[in-house]
């Protein structure tokens, strides 16, 4: 037999308890309310959600918070399209902010058709592993090993290895997220504004013919480019031409013309690379023999 009274007591107790707790929650909600700008959610939704860190923040949410607070401009997200950045700026009523597109650039042009590989490397097929075994066995110890760590680490598919084992950066797709810079054991990648057209595609610190023996497109530190460029822009350091990018506005492509190996280049639109007229032509299409 069901005890009606006991049933009634139990139900009413639970109801009373529920009402009490709901009231406490309602009060706590009012008293302890933390105001969060609803615009953060909207801005986060407009961002590409790549969480790549190129802006310097730990992720898209953190960047959205900073943009809403005014600590950053929408232009600092290099992954968004220009329309996307303008949308965010329009929504928040702020300036887009001038942020020049930056891209990763490789300071090596020694593909296996021009740079000698001294020994055959048989270990794990990654650059970082090869680097630990006698530097990877490339004749030029500064040069690209060509095993494609950068290609694998790129989240945006902006890096592809070409037929001679050199990574090629697609400037359209590159978001300057810094991943390839960090993964390269030879430190060959660096981020540069896309307007920097003058580029030394070499890191070899050997002087003269000794450098050319190992790689046909190495910088031989002849100093011709430094002499032809306006004062103080190109300097020879450790047998390598180093460009001072703070004075880059004055530079034209005249200084690359006499480079004997084509180590210093002028970068054109869409990955087009212009070498000086003095540079020797490279017609070999096949890899150099090992040894």
């Amino acid at each position: 037999m069901i005890d009606i009274q006991a049933l009634f007591v139990a139900v009413s107790l639970m109801v009373a308890l529920g009402v009490l707790l709901a009231t406490i929650l309602a009060i706590a909600n009012k008293k302890l309310h933390v105001f969060e700008d609803p615009r953060i959610d909207v801005v986060e939704g407009m961002l590409p959600s790549a969480n790549c860190g190129a802006c310097g923040e730990p992720g898209c949410r953190a960047f959205a918070e900073k943009v809403v607070k005014g600590g950053a401009t929408p232009g600092q997200c290099t992954v968004s399209s220009s329309d996307g950045r303008e949308d965010i700026a329009h929504f928040l009523g702020v300036d887009v902010g001038a942020q020049e597109k930056r891209v990763a650039r490789l300071a090596c042009a020694g593909g296996n058709n021009v740079a000698r590989q001294r020994v055959e490397y048989l270990g794990l097929p990654t650059c970082q592993a090869a680097h630990l075994v006698a530097g990877g066995g490339k004749g030029c110890v500064w040069g690209c090993l060509g095993l494609g760590d950068c290609e694998r680490v790129c989240d945006f598919g902006a890096i592809t290895m070409n037929e001679w084992g050199l990574p090629v950066v697609d400037e359209e797709k590159c978001t300057a997220c810094n991943d390839c810079v960090e993964v390269c054991p030879k430190d060959l990648f660096s981020l540069h504004p896309i307007s920097h057209k003058l580029w030394v595609a070499c890191k070899n610190e050997v002087f003269g013919e000794d450098a050319e023996i190992e790689c046909e497109v190495a910088c031989t530190a002849c100093g011709r480019c430094a002499a032809d460029a306006p004062e103080g822009i190109i300097e020879m350091k450790n047998n390598l031409a180093v460009i001072d990018y703070s004075k880059i506005e004055k530079v034209t492509d005249t200084c690359i013309q006499r480079c004997p190996t084509g180590a210093i280049v002028w970068l054109g639109e869409k990955g087009w690379v212009k070498k000086g007229v003095g540079a020797k032509g490279i017609i070999r299409k096949t890899p150099l023999p090992i040894g």
Partner: peptide, 10 residues
């Protein structure tokens, strides 16, 4: 061992 060397370096 090569994996371990790589890991130690990292």
């Amino acid at each position: 061992v090569q994996y371990f060397r790589l890991a130690k370096e990292a």
